[in-house]
């Protein structure tokens, strides 16, 4: 594999694998809680934050992580209070930050390939600091997910029951939102602001076609996500296609495969 002789590619693959793993784990809970839109909204907020960071000449991650984390808590609040209004509010926030981001970019560097890179991702975006940070954050996300696995399940399945029996559900919702925000910021520059939410939503939906237990859904979506990312990167390297989009294409393929497999199995059972 000659592609791994390029250091930037190795960095991108390491960061990407970790991000897709974390995104898939969190995605199971987000999709089942009907919070998929939060992931999408956060990536747009991240775009705005990234643009602002570039304009201020600040380090992209140090600016965007706190902003996106705050946005995550805000979106969670909105969705919890009222379903219908929450939907509209998320769309409002995500388009607003997209607009702010585009204006900031055009005022500073002008509309150029940078914007395209933010929107659809670039494999060149990862430097050594990013790799270090993403390894640390990915380990934190994984550790928290494993430690709180049972609580995440209970809060995802039935929040009212968990709260009634004395579980602090608000805390775990915030934990999920916090981890999601960090995962999105990490993956955004490589996958692109418009495509990163697919890493959260696709693997969960894909594994739900076949798996019947929460534990197997979780493990399966982690595996699907990692495999799709890896094959997506290789395909993008061979065909010189954009990385983010190629990974999403692989996720679509996996989804269709799982869906077809389930249809076959059901028709055999009948």
């Amino acid at each position: 594999m000659e592609m791994f002789s390029y250091p930037f590619l190795v960095r991108a693959v390491i960061v990407g694998l970790l991000v897709s793993l974390c995104a898939a784990l969190l995605g199971v809970s987000l999709v089942l809680k009907r919070y998929s839109m939060i992931g999408d909204g956060l990536s747009h907020v991240g775009f705005g934050a990234l643009a602002a960071a570039t304009a201020m000449n600040a380090a992209p991650l140090t600016v965007s992580i706190p902003i996106v984390v705050m946005a995550a808590f805000l979106l969670l609040r909105i969705s919890e209070n009222s379903r219908i209004k929450g939907d509209a509010a998320i769309a409002l926030i995500s388009t607003s930050s997209l607009a702010v981001g585009v204006v900031v970019i055009s005022l500073t560097t002008g509309m150029n390939t940078d914007v395209c890179n933010y929107m659809f991702g670039s494999i060149l975006a990862m430097n050594k600091d990013d790799v270090r940070l993403s390894i640390v954050l990915a380990v934190v996300v994984l550790a928290l997910f494993i430690l709180f696995y049972n609580k995440i399940f209970a809060v995802t399945f039935d929040e009212n029951f968990a709260r009634a029996t004395g579980v602090k559900t608000g805390l775990y919702n915030m934990l999920i939102a916090f981890l999601t925000a960090i995962t999105i910021v990490l993956g955004m520059r490589m996958m692109g602001a418009l495509l990163i939410s697919s890493l959260i939503i696709f693997p969960a939906l894909t594994s739900m076609r076949l798996c019947k237990k929460f534990k197997s859904v979780t493990i399966c979506s982690a595996a699907v996500s990692v495999i799709c990312f890896f094959t997506g990167v290789i395909i993008s390297y061979i065909n010189a296609t954009p990385t983010g989009a190629s990974v999403v294409i692989m996720n679509i393929a996996a989804f269709i495969l799982f869906w077809a497999a389930n249809s076959v199995r059901e028709s055999i059972q009948r």
Partner: peptide
């Protein structure tokens, strides 16, 4: 919801 019956029942013990 994709979960086994046992997973659901056991989640009652969480608190």
């Amino acid at each position: 919801f994709p979960a086994s019956v046992y997973e659901v029942v056991l989640s009652g013990r969480l608190a």
